[in-house]
Amino acid sequence: MNHWIKGASSYAADIDGLFWLVTALIGFWFIVAQGIVIYFALKYRRKEGVKAAYITGKSWRELNWVFIPVVLVVMCDGWIDVATASVWHNVKETLPPADQKVGVTAQQWAWTFRHEGPDGKLGTPDDIVTVDDLHVVVNKVIHVDLQSKDVLHSFSIPVMRFKQDTIPGRSITGWFKPILPGVYDVQCAEICGIGHGYMPARITVQTQADYDAWMKSIAAGATALPGTPSAAATSPAPQK
């Protein structure tokens, strides 16, 4: 799918490969079925004096015209199912050990990101808290800890092929491994009220050196900020 959107995570290629597999299989069936419908429609148009054939499709011999293609469809379905299960297992059912952890809190209508501070641990006073601005290091397995303060949101990074709803009262961990440095869109992909369209954020994928420099610049500028992990300090007040 690189033609439409970059694939910037380690598993983007797997998902795109599955996309092309499905496209090939259903494309075949789609073209065959359309071709037959259109061929029949043109070939068997009413002609004066030509009577239609009396074919009821009651016998097994006739029904094979339906069942044999269906068996082939089932085989394609099976192929898609197996390929899907393997990609899904890799993306959502397994959790490789984290190189970097990020806390993500959604609210109406902003994202609060909590990065590990210089101590390399999340949930300590030196955490770096930003709004709508996520920074991660390239080629590291990123764990995102997804929470919501109010309604459902969905944390979506199209280039990473990552999407996961955030649910108030729960904490859901997801992972991705960015492989292409750059700045990309982060979306909220679940309707969350009248500001749903105004919830863009961005993710900056950078090298370790750039990330360290960024962290230092924030830490230097942020001494005035309360060090406690309070998202409210840096995010706009929740809308009431």
Partner: peptide, 18 residues
Amino acid sequence: AVIMFAMIATLFKGSIEF
């Protein structure tokens, strides 16, 4: 798919008027 194929098969050797 069975239902769709059966519908398509109904067209076979018909006398179709559009």
